[in-house]
Simulated scan of single mutants.
Amino acid sequence: MSTFVLVHGAYHGAWCWHKVVPELEARGHDVVAFDLPAHGIDMIPFGDVSFEDYVERVCEAVRTPDESVTLVGHSMAGMVITQVAERCPDEIGTLVYLTAYLPPDDESMIDQRVEGSLISESFVADEARGVGVIADDKLEGLFYADCSASDVALARALVRPEPLEPLSAPVSISEGRFETVRRVYVRCGNDRAITIEQQRAMIEDRGCDLTLTLPASHSPFLSMPIETAETLIAAGK
């Protein structure tokens, strides 16, 4: 059996995995899910958070188990797990990009956003606070298009602003470290935040050892948790 380390994306917290964690555990796997700094119930001030803080928190999580882990990153967390794989490749058996950003060397998440995409059109920067948010009237359609009303209500209650600094920090990766780690991309065919076209382009450009697909929007952990858990297990084999 495997240990899965689940890393949430921007605005979210460990809460977003609350349906997937028991599904993985019921199938005999260990699961680690936690809040990145200034997300979920982590109360570090937004202005004190850097991309390096995200990376170090995930590094701590992958170094704890006695075995190599399946490291899963959703959306923005694709940037984070990419840098973590450069930092500690020996601790990771498989990287799983769950409809996530898969960056080349020396690019940031902001560099990955496609001009004219829905997420670019919906993003609002609050420079004074040092955070970005998704416009309230765009949130459901962008992230939770196929989710139940109760899931949308939960998300609206728990999403938080995203610190700006981590979004503009580039990754630094190399062939000798990051490139040695097996990576799997899980596409979400109905995603409106990172479109299927953008997902395909990243896979083609950066390369993956395996590609899997879910018929979901941007948040399959809420809309189809059983299928998501089973796909993550398949990815980690």
Rank of each mutant, 00 (worst) to 15 (best):
Y101H: 05
G73V: 10
F51T: 03
V72C: 07
P89L: 07
Y54S: 07
R87D: 14
I92M: 04
E67N: 10
L98Q: 14
E56P: 03
V58Y: 05
H74D: 08
D42W: 04
A100T: 01
Y101D: 01
T94F: 07
F51H: 05
R87C: 10
E60C: 06
P65V: 08
A61S: 13
Q83P: 03
R57L: 04
C59I: 11
L102K: 00
I81R: 12
D48M: 11
D48N: 13
L95I: 09
P89D: 09
P65A: 13
F46E: 08
E60K: 10
E67D: 13
T70S: 13
T70G: 13
D48T: 11
I44R: 15
P65Q: 14
V80F: 11
E52F: 11
Q83D: 01
V62C: 02
E56R: 14
T99K: 02
A61I: 06
D48Y: 11
G78H: 03
R87A: 15
D66L: 09
V80Y: 14
L71H: 12
L95S: 09
V72A: 06
I81P: 10
Q83T: 02
F51K: 02
G47V: 08
D53S: 14
Y97V: 05
C59W: 01
T99G: 05
Y97N: 04
V72W: 14
I44Q: 15
V49C: 06
Y101K: 00
R63L: 12
A77H: 08
A85V: 03
R63Y: 06
M43E: 14
G78T: 00
R63A: 15
E56L: 13
R87E: 15
V62K: 00
E67W: 00
A85R: 04
E67H: 12
P89G: 10
T70C: 15
D90T: 05
C59N: 05
G78L: 01
V72P: 11
S75R: 05
G73H: 10
D48K: 15
F46T: 01
E91K: 15
T82W: 04
D53C: 09
V96E: 12
L71P: 10
Y97R: 07
